[in-house]
Amino acid sequence: MKTLSRAAGISAISMALLYVIAFVFFGVFWSYPSDGSPAEKMTFLAEHQFSFNVIYTLMYLVFAVFLSFLVVGLYQRLKVKSEGLIAVGTLFGAIWVGLVIASGMIANIGLAYAIGLMEVNPEKAFDVWGIIYLMVESLGGGNELVGGLWVLVVSIVALQLGVFSKYLNCLGIFVGIAGVATIYPSEIFTEIFGISQIVWFIWIGSSLLGRENESKDWGGAVVAKR
């Protein structure tokens, strides 16, 4: 169990790092021609396909692998005293893992398909890419309902059990509510969820790693090392 807790802690901090990498990449290096013509936009995507695939692989596929460790690690940590509610939360976490993986694969394969249509009709290629991107955003980018529900339930359970810091759990509840709020199509909720979740990932990861110095029987008792 200590190994799983360590893996979950490292994964949480790694996910925060991936969020930061994505923010920096799209904020500093990604100069997408938003006001350009469909042909100009598709040409830009074709020229930057490799970097697009790399960043989306990190943002979605690698992120999902780390997320799976965190979902299972938190389930193991909290299930002893709250099997029912934490099981529901873990279900949302598992669904989120699947949605994130699907989003990443659709984005990478879909872009390659759209670029392949450029020789036939650049405008049609752009229309196809618009549909593909809408699918990606709907599943795992612009709508964070499922992830928000997972964080919300996990934080409520942890708060009820007195596991982790009270302030950490309150932050998790805030993050979860922000994620649920993304069902309303407004960028502000997505940004709040993303930024606040970076803090939550780092904090929960540090808390999990900090427990390596304790010997636990996972039935709730804590035995101090001699």
Score class of each variant (00 low, 15 high):
residue 93 G to D: 08
residue 147 G to D: 07
residue 99 L to M: 12
residue 145 L to M: 08
residue 202 I to F: 15
residue 127 D to S: 15
residue 159 L to V: 01
residue 134 L to N: 12
residue 194 G to A: 11
residue 144 E to I: 01
residue 142 G to D: 07
residue 157 V to A: 08
residue 86 I to F: 10
residue 174 F to A: 09
residue 165 S to G: 03
residue 115 I to G: 14
residue 80 V to R: 07
residue 124 K to P: 02
residue 90 T to V: 05
residue 191 E to M: 14
residue 82 S to W: 05
residue 152 L to Y: 07
residue 188 I to C: 01
residue 120 V to I: 14
residue 126 F to W: 14
residue 148 G to F: 05
residue 123 E to T: 15
residue 187 E to M: 02
residue 176 G to T: 00
residue 157 V to Y: 03
residue 171 L to G: 02
residue 170 C to Y: 09
residue 134 L to F: 14
residue 84 G to K: 15
residue 175 V to E: 10
residue 162 G to V: 00
residue 186 S to W: 13
residue 88 V to L: 15
residue 163 V to C: 03
residue 192 I to A: 13
residue 105 M to V: 14
residue 140 G to N: 07
residue 167 Y to I: 08
residue 156 I to C: 07
residue 144 E to Q: 14
residue 160 Q to Y: 12
residue 185 P to Q: 04
residue 141 G to K: 10
residue 130 G to D: 10
residue 133 Y to E: 13
residue 118 M to T: 08
residue 203 W to T: 01
residue 134 L to G: 11
residue 122 P to Y: 11
residue 140 G to S: 10
residue 200 W to M: 11
residue 84 G to L: 14
residue 173 I to D: 09
residue 178 A to V: 00
residue 95 I to Y: 15
residue 132 I to P: 06
residue 147 G to V: 03
residue 202 I to M: 15
residue 188 I to S: 03
residue 158 A to Q: 02
residue 165 S to D: 10
residue 119 E to S: 13
residue 187 E to G: 01
residue 100 V to R: 12
residue 156 I to S: 05
residue 107 A to C: 06
residue 191 E to W: 13
residue 183 I to P: 11
residue 103 S to T: 12
residue 92 F to N: 04
residue 80 V to N: 11
residue 92 F to W: 10
residue 164 F to K: 04
residue 108 N to K: 04
residue 145 L to Q: 03
residue 139 L to V: 05
residue 190 T to W: 13
residue 178 A to C: 11
residue 130 G to C: 07
residue 136 V to P: 10
residue 115 I to M: 12
residue 108 N to L: 09
residue 123 E to N: 14
residue 188 I to Q: 02
residue 165 S to R: 05
residue 178 A to P: 02
residue 151 V to M: 14
residue 79 K to L: 08
residue 134 L to I: 02
residue 123 E to C: 09
residue 176 G to I: 00
residue 123 E to S: 14
residue 93 G to I: 00
residue 103 S to I: 11
residue 80 V to T: 06
residue 158 A to P: 00
residue 112 A to F: 05
residue 102 A to F: 08
residue 165 S to W: 07
residue 166 K to M: 09
residue 145 L to E: 09
residue 148 G to L: 08
residue 133 Y to K: 09
residue 191 E to Q: 13
residue 165 S to V: 02
residue 156 I to Y: 10
residue 104 G to Q: 08
residue 202 I to W: 14
residue 127 D to Q: 11
residue 142 G to E: 04
residue 93 G to R: 04
residue 171 L to E: 06
residue 175 V to R: 07
residue 196 S to T: 04
residue 112 A to I: 00
residue 191 E to H: 10
residue 166 K to V: 01
residue 129 W to N: 06
